[in-house]
Computed example of a mutant assay.
Amino acid sequence: MRNSIIWAAAVSVLVAGCGGGATPSETTTAEGPVPTITPEVLAEMPHDTTAWTQGLEFDGPRLYEGTGVAGASQVRELDPETGAVLRAAAAPNNYYGEGITVVGDRIWELTWQNKVAVEWDKNTMTPLREVPVNGEGWGLCADGDRLVRSDGSDRLFFHDPETFAETGSVAVTRDGDPLTNLNELECVDGQVWANVWTSDTIVRIDPGSGEVNTVVDASELAGNAGRDNQKVLNGIAHIDGDEYLITGKYWPKMYRVRIDAPSE
């Protein structure tokens, strides 16, 4: 479990229409749709509006962000209370950076269509090596003794955290239908949270079966960010318990939220 973050510097706020808890909006039955819930906003803080956010993750009290766009991609450490960029390093070879995840004293960063993953030294923020990836890289998270990768399709791919060798995959379905555009990922307690590209939703996936068991409707947060075809919801980082940090590409803010997801 990640450490709790002190948010004294954050401005506590309830965003209109987003408070009031996360009550399922659909009734769950054996054959019915999975529940859809809304996040409860606890606080907000600034976010760099030049950041094309691809990955967001806490490592204890440290907050890391990976940004995209070829020639402008960075791996960053952010101040979790103010959103300020504390350190930043450019992706090597003008790669188009994608999702990131922390594994011990290393950070793995995906690239979009360069078909490599970059391993970084977390402390010095310097790239150590590149390893081949079979396909595109979108989202990435660490699930125990394996990594989970998305590539924009309806599949999650599993990788060895030391070698990045692919070890398997699973097809993802929502209510029995394939769910594509799986993007930025966050692994929490054996479940995989995934942003769904170009939508205002985040889904929770059982990586064993590939079934979506919870949908988070973040449309009001996306609306507050100033909705357009660039400011897309993307970025979810687990804080502790049922609290998360959510942001998006070029969003002016990050939101600390409570997601009261149904237990499995």
Rank of each mutant, 00 (worst) to 15 (best):
T36Y: 05
Q230N: 14
L86H: 06
E130S: 13
E243V: 10
E186Y: 05
E162K: 09
T247Y: 00
D260R: 00
C141D: 09
V215C: 04
Q113S: 14
V170D: 04
W52H: 13
D228I: 02
S150K: 04
V215F: 09
T180W: 13
T124A: 14
G60C: 10
P252S: 01
V11A: 13
P161I: 06
D145Y: 04
P178E: 04
E119F: 05
M254N: 12
S263E: 15
F157W: 11
E57A: 08
A142W: 00
K249F: 06
A22P: 15
T101Q: 01
F58G: 06
R258G: 06
T38M: 13
R106S: 15
T50K: 07
M125W: 08
I236E: 12
S150F: 09
N3K: 11
E31V: 12
L221I: 06
V192M: 09
T101V: 07
M125E: 09
G235Q: 06
Y64V: 08
G66K: 00
I205R: 01
R258L: 11
G19K: 05
E26L: 14
V215A: 02
T38E: 15
N123Q: 15
I246A: 00
G32P: 10
E220F: 04
E98F: 02
T53N: 01
E243I: 08
P262A: 01
T49L: 08
N195S: 07
E136L: 09
P207C: 04
V75T: 05
P132E: 08
G97L: 03
D105F: 05
L86C: 06
D240R: 11
V69S: 06
A117L: 10
A194D: 10
S150G: 11
I202T: 06
E162D: 14
D217E: 06
V232D: 05
T247V: 03
T111K: 05
P207H: 01
W112H: 11
Y255C: 01
G135T: 07
T180D: 13
D79T: 07
N195I: 10
W193V: 10
E81Q: 15
V192K: 04
D151C: 04
W7Q: 12
